[in-house]
Design a protein around this nucleic acid. Structure first.
Lengths: 211, 211
DNA sequence: CATAGAATGTCTATAAATAGACAATTAAGA
DNA sequence: TCTTAATTGTCTATTTATAGACATTCTATG
């Protein structure tokens, strides 16, 4: 299994204090919107504590969760380097604190502090190759295995040590691009195999299986 | 459509000369192996001219092309930041020249020259968000549309301005995870729609369609 | 120039996924 | 507490994809 470190995990601790001194810290209550899709806001955000849910709204107004990032992870890199709008809708899961750097603040620190730039590049690189891995091998696995991999990733990136993931089956339907009936069937089998349990709006991973 | 710049396109021209002075330049003939899968070699490589094909070997010994990178693009970032082996088999497509930086050379330049580190981060970030985009929306499209998107990406990253892509249908089968019959059917329809032509080991894009 | 291996085009019986409907369950708000 | 909207579980007819076989076409190699 691929290991992916968060931005903060890749930085010396000293740098975090510096980041906090430079950037703006914002608090969000559970469910509060952090930014909406397509917004042109620019800046790097770092999750100090809590979690951020990323999702997409379809043309028909439905919402789908695509990722959850826990403490230490960053997002918004693409707005700094690619002049892109926010690709996903983001809102807080539980009480959450976000550290934000403006483009100017980021650029200054990036130029002055190689350990910071190095950590940024490292985390983005790891995410890129993990994503390539993921899509290359997901296509050759059963829906059951795809679900396990997807959930394992959410568990790891979101820091859900207990395996209790706030996901709807509909989110899996969207992420995997198969029918709801197929997802239900696959979950049945995974339940029977003792891999997971399902609850209302919740999936519980029973072991750190890497299928 | 997402725009993705190569590493060299993101760097001031002056820096390229410096890179050439620092790194090692290696020439490869058509089809020559650049590195094999799972190798633990470390270093950043930049395509100076020519192209590099990336692929995977399955357990049964079959080979599948997964990407082609043309002049200006870099690869091997993951070996620098993630202690990972080479994820793909790489060999030259046509006469190709590669500029290689060792970890030490890379680290030194990265620390000393923010324009270099910035270009590296920018290109990796762009590739990450493009990959995320790609996998999020590919799952909700028809096989026909998936093929067009895939081929458009190969065309762009590989610098195939004329649309003549050195790909087998088997490569599409692997990349999309559907049966060969389904790929044949989809290609039939795309041919009928005037989107592409197929030849032996070759697919020709007839227009820069972004389906 | 001949030949063998590789790639492509096509078909059929079989297997699998899908849309759509409906009932049962759950949680959140009045 | 009651009510309502959202979510989940399940079923069926229909559509679609699949594996596997076979013939054909193409190219590299001798």
């Amino acid at each position: 299994m691929t290991v992916h470190d968060s931005l903060l995990a890749l930085m010396p601790r000293r740098l975090l204090a510096e980041l906090k001194a430079i950037g703006a810290r914002r608090h969000f209550a559970d469910g509060q919107v952090i930014h909406t899709q397509q917004t042109m806001s620019v800046g790097l955000s770092i999750v100090l504590h809590g979690r951020v849910c990323f999702g997409l709204y379809t043309e028909s107004g439905d919402y789908y969760l695509t990722a959850i990032l826990g403490a230490g992870h960053c997002f918004g890199e693409a707005t700094l380097f690619a002049d892109r709008p926010r690709a996903y809708h983001a809102d807080a899961f539980g009480d959450t604190e976000i550290l934000s750097l403006t483009q100017r603040q980021f650029d200054h620190l990036y130029k002055r502090e190689p350990r910071f730039s190095r950590a940024v590049t490292a985390t983005v690189t790891q995410r890129l190759y993990e994503a390539l891995d993921f899509s290359d091998d997901l296509r050759h696995r059963s829906v059951e295995q795809q679900i396990v991999r997807l959930l394992s990733r959410v568990q790891r990136l979101g820091g859900f040590g207990d395996g209790v993931l706030p996901m709807r089956q509909q989110d899996l339907v969207f992420s995997l691009g198969v029918s709801r009936a197929r997802v239900c069937q696959a979950l049945d089998r995974l339940r029977a195999a003792g891999v997971l349990e399902t609850r209302y709006r919740t999936i519980v991973m029973l072991a750190s299986v890497n299928g």
